[in-house]
Simulated scan of single mutants.
Amino acid sequence: MVFPELIDGGGEEMPYTQKENTIVSKQTIVALVPGRFKENIRVALRSYDLEEIRFRVNRPPELVYRNDAYFMGAETLSTNDAEFIMNQLSQHSLYAFEEELRNGFLTLAGGHRVGLGGETIVENGMVKTLKHVRSFNVRITRQMNGVAGRYLTDLFHGQWRNTLIVGPPQSGKTTLLRDIARTASYGQQAKQMTPIPPRKVAIADERSEIAAAFEGVPQHDLGPRTDVLDRCPKAEGMMMLVRAMSPDLLIVDEIGSERDKSALREAMNAGVSVICSAHGRTVEDMEDRALLRTSSGRPLFDRLLLLDGNKRGKLIIPKKVSV
């Protein structure tokens, strides 16, 4: 294997100490919580480090922080508590949430996302919905502006470079994509770097994680020139956005299939810049999944950004290899 070339400038921790903007009141989360747990949840939500609140029947609620996790006392969640949470999520109209249940999560106003675990109902080999939901993962959404700043000089040069962001879960891939979208949409006129003119941005957001859309409206500030296609399969969504919205920059999360790769190539061939992410830890992971190159060995992306579990990034220039 011919290894890619490293670019100087990676490796420092992403600036997560900058101002964090929670999109709406955390009351949307507190409203889900059974009464005896509410006050402790209110206190926990004051921390910027809180990432998840997990409720499981017959277990105490668990608070998951950026670098730690612990159970909230000894009192456990009952089946009645789980039904209370479901009623709050559905506003007592479960039939209206069949599609969300089939996908295994619900999105709250404000973009906070609730993952669900329970018993699946399967028809013709496909999950139709969930019943007897007994575990909940409330993922706290926050917008962290500025985290892409240290990479912009390498990701933008006259136009946005085709870039693949790679990292393990919780490494900051989606947060970085969100900030790139916002920066591209607004543009940037920082004195210390080449100005970035505003561009039309399109986001294929299959899992509602980048825009955190609620009823089609993004709950994060993605800039004034950004269009979002929410909960659409990535490959179809990318093609729909290229045809209908004529973007300058297309952003998509968690690519992986051959159909995704084909759609990326189609978008690039149409003159659209693409910035996307994939799960992985190393260059070899991407080589094994054939995400870095075309069949001729030519690099599919201009830049590869590897993030580690501490949200540190290294920029790499993929090279052509013999096939």
Rank of each mutant, 00 (worst) to 15 (best):
P197Q: 07
L241E: 00
M238F: 03
G216L: 00
G256A: 05
D221C: 13
I251M: 03
T194N: 12
L250S: 10
E209N: 06
E236G: 06
V201M: 09
D230V: 03
E209R: 06
E206H: 06
D230I: 03
A212Y: 03
D230H: 05
T226K: 09
P218G: 12
S257D: 09
K234A: 11
P195N: 13
P247V: 03
A244D: 02
A211W: 04
E236R: 13
A212Q: 01
V252G: 03
I255C: 07
P198H: 15
V228L: 04
R259W: 12
D253W: 08
T194Y: 07
D248K: 02
Q219L: 13
V228G: 00
G237R: 08
G216K: 01
A213Q: 05
I251R: 02
R259G: 11
M193E: 15
A202L: 04
D205M: 10
C232N: 10
R231K: 14
G237T: 02
P233H: 15
V252H: 03
F214N: 04
S246T: 05
S208W: 10
P233Q: 07
L249N: 00
P233N: 13
Q192M: 04
S257F: 07
M193C: 15
D248V: 05
A202K: 01
K234M: 07
D260H: 02
D260Y: 11
F214I: 12
A212S: 06
E258D: 14
M240G: 04
E206S: 08
S257W: 04
M239Q: 12
P247W: 01
R231E: 12
E215G: 13
A244V: 01
R207C: 14
V252K: 08
